[in-house]
Design a protein around this nucleic acid. Structure first.
Length: 489
RNA sequence: GCCCCCAUCGUCUAGCGGUCCAGGACGCCGCCCUUUCAAGGCGGUAGCACGGGUUCGAACCCCGUUGGGGGCACCA
């Protein structure tokens, strides 16, 4: 039975890289029929917020990553917020102290640095294990000075090695990692301690995390040895270090980078399944000749050991292309349902739409769908169908509503004003007769002005269908308005 | 500086010693379709970082070089 977990800390914005990590852990658990644990690592009171916590849950649910154990779901190993687990850490720490795996350390950073320099070493080497064998008298003396000791784990003097699920064997030489702090002087537990303790207690078997955490793995290994020794853990989990997600440059996508904000993809109208698909591609491939798939297909095929070890750049263009194919694949009803919130937010339709709006939406949907990359595109694409008048884009007017285009608007209005049968085929026939045959214009020169006058843009859904949906009144009025305001010089 | 990771088209990748003068996708460029834009169809552009080995044979294995990245907190 495999148990994976996702354990973000609720600080600020949700990062796409974090959601990629969540996705892979989820997919691995689902593929293997295992358990997916969701845990909140809010041990940093200064940076964590309740709002961020709620938002994290919302993002997970929106993406479709359901958890078997975790907040609001419960489970046998709760609570699942570290801020509620301080007692657990205190107890485990006591066991480690009793077994001699950890010791009190009084050195300040300044003292460590001074000692390193005095020895002619780089201060970057960090703590020098100097407090490993302090006598009781020495400890008492430090306390007398008012110092509060931190608790450090005594690192083993052997190489620390593991078989990474993605990278194969990784080895850190004995002595290359200094004893690290488990608990602060004030007794507050730190991430390098709480993370493995909770993983152990929650029975996590497979740890999939970002490569940025790889250098801390030897410490986790050492802690696991100690935890196993005192009976808190029953062995060490497998580790798999996922490739980093890069941004535009050759750098890890940072929280500062706007592209890293998961919300912007939701707000622009990426489909959850489209984003899952693209995120999955960041380090994984379903087949050599295919890269569009559903979450279910991903679960079916996902194999962690096939995840690539090299960093992946987040490519917005590709993400959009993948999303667009998911949009196109939507059943029409589904497309309408998903696009309504965006149109409603823009004030174009009611939510739910009125019967009239619904009729227009369903009619235009198939044509809008293949022109939609992200759902918010529908606002610009369909807006003209849901307003009384159009606001004509000045650039579009400059291009297609010049003085010499006035005749087209006149002819179009005349042809449509008294058209007896207001249907797409009849509209097409009437316009072709009036503009192409009548005025002798090339189709491009004939329909361009009409399109801009009606939709306000040079790009729109197919014209005749749009005209039918617009109705006679609005169509004729817009043609006349455009004639007045744009082609009279 | 020290430790570690990585190295196939611009980008994401397939490739797990011969079937690869390297396949797919995005992007880009043509053409077709066409009332615009899309979609769709067809075609094209472009890559195994370098040097040594191992082997009958290397994109695939080993070593080195170079390059890129990550980490070095009483943050997570």
């Amino acid at each position: 039975m495999t148990v994976t977990r996702f354990c973000p800390s609720p600080t600020g914005l949700v990062h796409v890289g974090a959601m990629r990590t969540a996705l892979f852990n989820w997919a691995h658990a689902r593929h293997t029929g295992g358990t997916f644990v969701f845990r909140i690592e809010d041990t940093d009171a200064a940076r964590d917020s309740e709002e961020s916590y709620r938002h994290l849950l919302d993002c997970m649910r929106w993406l479709g990553l359901d958890w078997d154990e975790g907040p609001e779901v419960g489970g046998p190993h709760g609570p699942y917020r570290q801020s509620e687990r301080h007692e657990v850490y205190r107890e485990v720490a006591a066991k480690l102290v009793a077994a001699g795996h950890v010791y009190e350390s009084f050195s300040t950073n300044e003292e460590v640095e001074a000692r390193r320099r005095a020895a002619g070493q780089d201060p970057k080497l960090g703590y020098d294990n100097a407090d490993r064998s302090l006598t009781d008298a020495q400890k008492a003396a430090f306390r007398a000075e008012g110092r509060e000791p931190v608790l450090r784990l005594r690192m083993p003097d052997t190489d620390l090695v593991w078989a990474d699920l993605i990278r194969g064997e990784v080895r850190f030489a004995a002595g290359s990692v200094p004893d690290f702090v488990l608990l602060r002087g004030n007794g507050v537990p730190l991430y390098p301690f709480t993370n493995p303790v909770d993983d152990a207690l929650m029975g996590v078997t497979d740890v999939l995390r970002g490569e940025d955490l790889l250098p801390s793995t030897p410490r986790q290994l050492a802690l696991y040895q100690a935890l196993t020794d005192v009976g808190v853990a029953q062995g060490t989990p497998r580790f798999g270090h996922l490739p980093l997600v890069f941004g535009e440059g050759n750098k890890k996508l940072s929280k500062r980078d706007p592209q890293s904000n998961f919300d912007v993809y939701r707000e622009r109208g990426f489909l959850p399944e489209g984003l899952v698909n693209y995120l999955a591609l960041l380090g994984w491939a379903i087949a050599d000749d295919r890269d569009v798939f559903s979450p279910a297909e991903m679960v079916e095929a996902f194999d962690v050991t096939r995840v690539s070890a090299n960093p992946a750049r987040f490519d917005l263009k590709k993400a959009e292309a993948i999303n667009a194919t998911h949009v196109r694949a939507l059943p029409v009803d589904d497309y309408v349902a998903r696009v309504v919130p965006f149109l409603a937010r823009a004030g174009l339709v009611a939510d739910p739409p009125t019967p009239g709006q619904d009729r227009v939406l369903r009619a235009i949907a198939p044509m809008a769908q293949e022109r939609t990359v992200v759902l918010s595109d529908a606002v610009g694409l369909l807006g003209f169908l849901f307003t009384e008048d159009v606001e004509v884009d000045p650039a579009a007017a400059a291009k297609n509503l010049r003085p010499e285009d006035g005749e087209v608007l006149d002819a179009a209005a005349a042809a449509l004003r008294d058209l007896e049968e207001w249907t797409t085929p009849r509209i097409e026939q009437a316009l072709k007769e009036a503009l192409v045959e009548g005025l002798g214009r090339k189709p491009r020169q004939a329909f361009g002005p009409v399109r801009v006058a009606l939709s306000g843009r040079t790009v729109s859904p197919p014209l005749y269908e749009s005209i039918e949906l617009l109705g006679r009144d609005r169509t004729v009025r817009r043609l006349e308005n455009a004639r007045e305001t744009h082609t009279r010089g």
